[in-house]
């Protein structure tokens, strides 16, 4: 429970953070809320030689109505996402899903950007923002770029962020009154989901994101397309795992995970009316 030796520097701005990571190279990691990185370091599964603390960059913590989308600063704490009036009105699925992250202590420290950049397929927010068609903004030494959530998750805990890029903003399209539901299936309230489903539907369109059903969060497009074509939730849910490639672990076999994905997707679609 004692991490390997590391150096610590604190960045006062996004620009400084990017400059610092350019100086320190591959062995450096950004530290935001620390709720994913620090446990890995304590177990010595991660041994960065430098931590660049971005946790106090205040101007990356905001939630703003931008017309057709809501912009969320990457360092916004889960607690603030959970309780945001703007999100409650325009992206309630995200605010609700965030309630399911860890426990209150985790939600007061952890940040939305940290959770997404960590790219853990078992986390609630990658699949939720994927279902919502969010866009992420990354800043690097050569300026900023937008990355669609669908292009962001490359493999297990690996994102499209370059080593010298910092995730700065999450842009979530307004849900425009879409009906939604979030299903998180786990054994203890504070655990990662064994399987989770974030779903919304609005007339003929629908979006379904799956938690922990592959090495990356999964967009269940076949099931969403079925809904768009008028299928019942039960029939659409039969296709819930078509895009998945789940792994077995202590809590679930592959077969059971696929079964859960179908049951939970059906329930989510039935509830989202």
């Amino acid at each position: 429970m004692i991490p390997a030796k590391f150096d610590y520097v604190r960045a006062g701005s996004a620009e400084e953070a990017i400059r610092l990571i350019g100086e320190h190279g591959d062995e450096a990691k950004f530290l935001a809320g620390g709720h994913s990185l620090l446990p890995l370091m304590k177990l010595r599964l991660a041994q960065p030689s430098v931590l660049i603390d971005i946790g106090r960059i205040r101007d990356l913590s905001y939630i703003e109505d931008k017309g057709d989308y809501v912009a969320i600063g990457a360092l916004t704490r889960h607690h603030d996402v959970e309780h945001s009036d703007v999100l409650a009105e325009h992206a309630p699925l995200l605010a609700h899903a965030t309630k399911h992250v860890g426990d209150p202590q985790v939600r007061h420290r952890g940040t939305i950007g940290g959770s997404l950049a960590h790219a853990d397929p078992a986390s609630d927010l990658p699949a939720t923002t994927l279902a919502l068609g969010a866009t992420y903004v990354a800043a690097g030494p050569n300026g900023t770029r937008e990355i669609a959530a669908g292009d962001f998750y490359e493999s297990f805990m690996t994102s499209a962020l370059a080593p010298d890029e910092l995730l700065t903003e999450i842009r979530v399209p307004k849900m425009n009154g879409a009906k939604w539901n979030f299903q998180k299936f786990n054994r203890r309230a504070l655990d990662w989901a064994i399987v989770g489903v974030a779903a919304w539907r609005n007339g003929d369109s629908a979006g379904i994101g799956l938690v922990n059903m592959a090495g990356t969060p999964v967009l269940a497009t076949a099931a969403a397309d079925a809904i768009a074509s008028g299928a019942s939730p039960a029939d659409a849910a039969e296709h819930a795992a078509d895009e998945s490639d789940p792994q077995a672990d202590l809590n679930a076999s592959v077969e059971y995970r696929v079964h859960l994905a179908k049951v939970l997707t059906r329930r989510a679609l039935e509830a989202a009316v």
């Binding site: 426990d103 203890r188 309230a189 504070l190 655990d191 202590l250």
Partner: peptide, 11 residues
């Protein structure tokens, strides 16, 4: 304690 599931008060 992530894998050995001691229940918490909420469970």
């Amino acid at each position: 304690l992530a894998d050995y599931l001691v229940p918490a008060a909420s469970d």
